[in-house]
Amino acid sequence: MGQVVLVTGVSRYIGGVLARRLAADPSVEKVIGVDVIPPPRDLGGAEFIRADIRNPMIGKVIAQGDVDTVVHANVIATPTFAGGRTPQKEINVIGTMQLLAACQKAGTVKRLVVKSTAAVYGSTPRDPAMFTEEMSAKRLPSSGFGKDSIEVEGYVRGFARRRPDTEILTLRFANIIGPRIRTSITDYFNLPVIPVPFGYDARLQFFHEDDAIAALARGVTGSTTGVVNLAGEGVLTVLQAASIVRRPVVMVPMAAAGTIGGLGKRFGLVDFSPDQMSFLAFGRGMDTTVMHDSFGFTPKFSTRAAFEDYARTVSPVYPSMDGVAGAVGGLVGAAQQVLGRGRGKH
């Protein structure tokens, strides 16, 4: 008998594609997708049930479907996609509480996979270069997604204490990036002029969207438990990434970062909390030894490759060096032709 998997947050990119992929997996008998809005993408063989995880209804869905594996992919990173900070927090925190309560009640649930984030490590100048799974944030994220994620992980630990028989896997993803997904970091690098905290050049890690889905699918079908950091090989700095997308940068003093963030939010350009600004200043790195060894997953894309794959979809603001060299050559050539003609006439 195959697994019956419940995936939350199927109306968003990762959840939707994951549900479709799991439905196509022969070892998975049935996939139930749950979200509050109908999915914009085809879920393939997955069954969609419109249910709100903030509502005890979710318990009925789990009980009736004989669900044995729950994938919680509904922790929303960007407030704009949830309709504001308040609903975002409600979906993230209350939703997780309700879902875990339902899982605890339903005797059928054997495995829980939680899509978490590297944001739980925070971002400060006192951070070690690379966070391993056992480390915790030097300064807890004070707002937004990072804070939600810490609370979510807290509830997951509580659930693990109350249901020790359940296998629990928490996947901490580095910033997921790729040509199709839209997150606050993709919005950020899509700005016509990228504001960078003055005097800082943070290290960033990225994880490709395809790898993210593959890793979640592996988490569902595999038997690894515990916490796993997921990030592509290597790091990029913010300025390096900006030059890869060929966007001009503007140096913003950290003190003004709040104002800039507010403006960006007002104009709907990008949604950046203070935590994300400090992320852009100090960066973060995650050690991926556990991912390679015990989780047995090797991402197809390195940090750089993932970012370059994303950069393909971004139209550059300034031309490449080849383009500039060609244009300069052309201009000089044209000027010379004009001059030459003048000379020839006399």
Binding site: P125, A129, M130, T132, G199
Partner: peptide, 28 residues
């Protein structure tokens, strides 16, 4: 950590190969 907290200096220090004086980094 004061070095890495300071703008410009922190970025230069990291580019030049420095890192935070913490046991984890030294072990790495």
């Amino acid at each position: 950590d004061l070095v890495f907290q300071t703008p410009v200096l922190g970025a230069f220090a990291r580019r030049g190969g420095s890192t935070l004086a913490t046991g984890d980094d030294v072990d790495r």
